[in-house]
């Protein structure tokens, strides 16, 4: 547990001190969502209706953007080999890294989302659902993303392949997340939110094992 916390704080510190990790993903998230109105037009009614979807797609892209650093930097400077040899097993190490990734990218998106909702004319009654769905759904993005990041460790310029691998796998989170916001707008129940929670729990529970397998095959001999 001590090692887990140590690794977690190390990763968070690294993200904040080197390269402005948290603000970068948040800025990207804000930028993508503010570009959409330029693409679809300034119709506030339309924007209000699709705001949940826009923010969810932007969140998925923002989470994806920072994934390549999840294991890559440690892989390149050899820290990952040390981690693989340390008493902390790789599954727990992956879980710590996933949690650190969520705290530095997922959490800022959750906090920033109401402001962007305002820009996109999201109806007032949907703010709770927007924040709750992003809070509960973004860990799944970090989890599934970590699997992709671990598998593409030895790929040079693996960013595009990472996207190709991860994006199809997270469609359920996108569908349920955007639908949860829509449900709150139209008052059509909580089904989407519950399904999103279920998907997120399963993804977070299983992803440390799959990403540890990915790391293991890349650091071992």
């Amino acid at each position: 547990m001590k090692a887990f916390v140590a690794l977690l704080t190390r990763d968070i510190r690294l993200a904040f001190r080197a390269g402005g990790g948290a603000s970068l993903a948040a800025a990207f998230f804000a930028l993508v969502s503010s570009l959409v109105p330029f693409g679809v037009g300034a119709d506030l009614v339309l924007l209000g209706r699709i705001a949940g979807g826009i923010l969810w797609v932007s969140a998925a892209l923002a989470a994806l953007l920072s994934l390549d650093r999840l294991f890559q930097a440690d892989f390149e400077d050899g820290s990952l080999d040390v981690l693989a040899l340390s008493p902390l097993n790789l599954e727990a190490a992956s879980a710590a890294k996933i949690l650190a990734h969520w705290i530095t990218t997922g959490l800022p998106l959750v906090l920033l989302s109401p402001v962007l909702g305002l820009l996109l004319n999201l109806p007032t009654r949907a703010y709770g659902a927007l924040i709750a769905s992003l809070a509960i759904g973004t860990p799944a993005l970090s989890g599934v993303g970590a699997i992709g990041a671990a598998l593409t460790l030895s790929v040079r310029r693996g960013g595009l392949i990472l996207a190709l691998i991860v994006l199809p796998l997270i469609t359920p989170a996108l569908i349920f997340g955007a639908s949860a916001v829509l449900d709150a707008m139209e008052d059509t129940g909580r089904g989407a939110f519950l399904f999103l929670a279920a998907f997120s729990v399963a993804a977070v529970a299983l992803s440390p094992f799959a990403s540890a397998a990915g790391v293991r095959l890349n650091v071992g001999g």
Partner: peptide, 28 residues
């Protein structure tokens, strides 16, 4: 090995994706 891990993750996810799309359809 990497591809095998991906195929297994996908195998766990494909039914969920199908379900989510199906659900999304009937609702919206």
């Amino acid at each position: 090995k990497a591809a095998a891990v991906l195929a297994l993750v996908g195998a766990a996810d494909v039914p969920v994706i199908h379900f989510s799309v199906d659900w999304w359809n009937t609702l919206h």
